[in-house]
């Protein structure tokens, strides 16, 4: 199978859909001439022209709102948020318009819109440029929210999103644009609302999404080697709709769960996962569900402080020991 970077997987999905469907257009800051801050759209202006690859002024609310209007007229716009941090500027458009128009129009209008961009931290961008917004956006009915971690899923979910009749937010793993993975040839989609078992195991369920999945896979190897614990790693990948079944089935098998996320714990995805597990698999649990989340602070700048603000291998291993009732 061909190997491709996460960045190229997203780009090829957009390019292929643009070839297939003239109603697909791109909007965003410096996505055309500049090539995109993260080069995800590099080369697309030359290929598709300025009517379809639209460089916008730095006005997220304005161009996101305009994209919603385009979508209501039957186009399939893809908005690039240079980073999701800037989406607060467009939050009124995303939440008050995109998420609700189908509903308050009584089903007369729809918003087939994709908004994509890098999410999360890890590259010393400090407080205003570091957020993990999956819990925030996942809160709103009417939106779909996904967070792919592999190039395979990034491409398949992007194509699925473009063809979806409702607004889809793709929270890309900003730190992983250069990572490589296998991507099938030809067109395929990854269905929303289905978690992925990234590693099979029997002793504990490690649950996460985005770049945390890679961390969990590393932890699983260490647990196997050092502690003899065989961990199952679940990549949630679709925040809304949310696949309770896969998580619950995993916990029914392992009887223990550690949920890991980069975002703040309170009112977070991990909290929702923990609640789902206790609702549906209470009798199977041998220990309370552990959450490992980001520090409850604005994101710091200094390398060591930032590292301390996000989940790390030691924290996760400690949590696993707690649910397994083991000493270090």
């Amino acid at each position: 199978m061909p190997v491709m970077t996460y960045r190229d997987a997203i780009k090829s999905a957009m390019a292929e859909e643009m070839e297939r469907d003239e109603s697909v257009v791109l909007l965003g800051e410096d996505i055309g001439l500049y090539g995109g801050t993260h080069l995800v759209t590099d080369g697309l202006l030359d290929k598709f022209g300025s009517k379809r690859v639209i460089d916008t002024p730095i006005a997220e609310g304005g161009f996101t709102g305009a994209a919603i209007g385009m979508a209501m007229m039957g186009m399939r716009p893809i908005v690039e948020m240079m980073t999701w941090n800037f989406s607060f500027q467009a939050a009124d458009q995303i939440i008050q318009n995109a998420a609700k128009i189908r509903y308050f129009s009584g089903g007369q209008a729809s918003v087939p819109l994709v908004i994509r961009g890098p999410n999360g931290g890890g590259v010393q961008l400090s407080a205003q440029h570091t957020h993990s917004l999956e819990g925030f956006y996942g809160h709103f009915p009417g939106l779909k929210v996904v967070a792919p971690v592999t190039p395979h899923d990034a491409k398949g979910m992007m194509i699925e999103a473009i063809r979806d009749p409702d607004p889809v937010l793709i929270l890309e793993a900003g730190a992983l644009y250069g990572t490589k993975g296998e991507v099938p040839e030809g067109e395929y989609t990854v269905e929303f609302g289905k978690a992925r078992i990234a590693r099979e195991g029997t002793d504990v369920s490690l649950i996460g999404y985005g770049r945390q999945v890679n961390l969990l896979l590393k932890v699983a190897e260490r647990l196997q080697a050092d502690e003899g614990i065989t961990a199952e790693v679940i990549d949630v990948r679709s925040i809304r709709p949310f696949d309770e079944e896969t998580l619950v089935n995993s916990v029914m098998k392992t009887n223990r769960a550690v949920v890991v996320e980069e975002q703040w714990r309170w009112f977070s995805v991990a909290s929702e996962v923990a609640a789902s597990i206790q609702e549906h698999a209470f009798d199977y649990l041998d220990a309370p569900v552990e959450r490992v989340s980001g520090a409850e602070t604005p994101a710091p700048y200094a390398r060591n402080l930032e590292a301390a603000a996000f989940p790390n291998e030691e924290q996760i291993i400690d949590a696993v020991r707690r649910v397994a009732y083991r000493r270090a």
Binding site: V25, K51, G61, G62, F63, T64, G65, A66, A67, I68, G69, M70, A71, M72, M73, G74, M75, P77, D92, Q93, Q96, N97, I101, F104, S105, A109
Partner: peptide, 25 residues
């Protein structure tokens, strides 16, 4: 009629985007 909207100013970008779509189409 593409809607009445309740947030002051919030629908204006939508209208501009609709016009873009109509020119594009």
């Amino acid at each position: 009629l593409m809607g009445g909207y309740g947030i002051v100013g919030g629908h204006i970008p939508l209208g501009v985007g609709m016009a873009y779509a109509m020119a594009y189409q």
